[in-house]
Structures are given as C-alpha cells and as structure tokens.
C-alpha cells in the first residue's frame, strides 16, 4: 500500500500520462501507469457483508478481481445502466477493478498543468484528490485511487468479517 502511494503523481518532473474517465457527469483522471487494462463490465458476484460500493467479484481470465463502484464512494448519483467499463488497476499487491461510465481520453500533462486541489467546501471528502487540471475547458480531478478505496474501505471490509450474522 505504501508503494502505491509513492507511485501517485505527487513528484512529477516531466510529462506524465493520465487516463481520463467519466463518472456520472464529472470527469476524473488517474495515472495511466496504475491502470492495467480496461474491460467491458462483466457479471459480478456480490460478496456478503461488504459495503455497498463494493460491487462484488468478477472473473478476469481466471483471476478473481474485486470491483468497486466509485460513484457510491464519492457520493455521485449511480445510474445502474450507464456503467460500461471496468478499469483494472494494479497497485501491487492489490489489484482491483473500478466501474466507470466511460473512458474519455489519455491526457499528457506537465507539472505546471496540474494545480493543487482547491480548498473548497465539497460534498466529497477531498483527501484522495491529488490535483486538478483542465481539459477542453472542463475541470478534471486527478484521483489517487489507492487512497480513495483503501484507507477507510479496506478497514471497512476488514471489519465486516467481525460482523456477526443475525
């Protein structure tokens, strides 16, 4: 987990590529290197006693991958039918999938093009936004997925095993 945060785009010197995607109406980007591949959303299997944004597990060519729904995590409206793709993220040793509405583009950004995250009141916990950039006159939030999903979520999942069934 520590490795994964080191990989995050805090100390970029030159051009770095980002994968931009849409969640609901908002646009986000993650470092391209942390995305292993993008696949169409397959059937997922729910896992009992896990938080709602944990969609379940899927079969990726014989490997079992956990799939998360970022929208539920970020408090965005979840439209069940519009999700199309899963970004398979590799933060070794963790490997998990994140459901997105659409994959938009790959951005190549210099350090100057990324500004620090704005300190504004937001309905989202802004901890996992590492920076903000502009693309086609729209704001794109750069996410640290490991942070977005790990810090509290892994705990939540860990805790869930202690939940006694009623």
């Amino acid at each position: 987990m520590k490795e994964s945060t080191e990989k995050s785009p805090q100390n970029i010197t030159h051009n770095e590529s980002y994968l931009a995607f849409s969640l609901s109406t908002e646009r986000f980007a993650i470092p391209l290197l942390s995305a292993k591949e993008v696949v169409a959303l397959p059937e997922t299997t729910r896992v009992p006693h896990t938080p709602p944004h944990f969609l379940g597990i899927m079969n990726l060519r014989g490997q079992i991958i956990s799939v998360f729904d970022l929208r539920l995590k970020l408090g965005l409206p979840a439209d069940k039918d519009s999700e199309t793709s899963v970004i398979i993220c590799d933060f070794s040793p963790l490997c998990f999938g994140v459901v997105v509405n659409s994959i938009d583009t790959v951005l190549s950004l210099t350090e100057e093009q990324i500004s620090a995250r704005p300190e504004i009141e937001s309905r989202m916990n802004s901890e996992y936004i590492t920076g903000v950039t502009k693309s086609e006159d729209r704001l794109v939030l750069i996410l640290d997925l490991a942070k977005a999903l790990n810090v509290d979520d892994q705990l939540a999942i860990h805790n869930s095993r202690n939940l006694k069934t009623s």
Binding site: V47, P48, T50, N59, I64, S66, F96, I157, S160, R161
Partner: peptide, 27 residues
C-alpha cells in the same frame, strides 16, 4: 481455489473464490 484480493481481507465464512463452468466468479 483462488485467493480473493488482499482488499477483501479475511471474510468470515468465505475461504476463497472460484470460477464456475459458465465463467462467473463464485465464492
């Protein structure tokens, strides 16, 4: 038997995952 990802932690009552004949993942 496949291990589930680390992000799942240890879920009580679940020992792992497997792929069913039709390709779906199951616990």
């Amino acid at each position: 038997i496949k291990s589930l990802g680390e992000e799942m932690g240890n879920l009580q009552g679940i020992t792992g995952g497997a792929i069913l004949g039709d390709g779906a993942a199951a616990l």
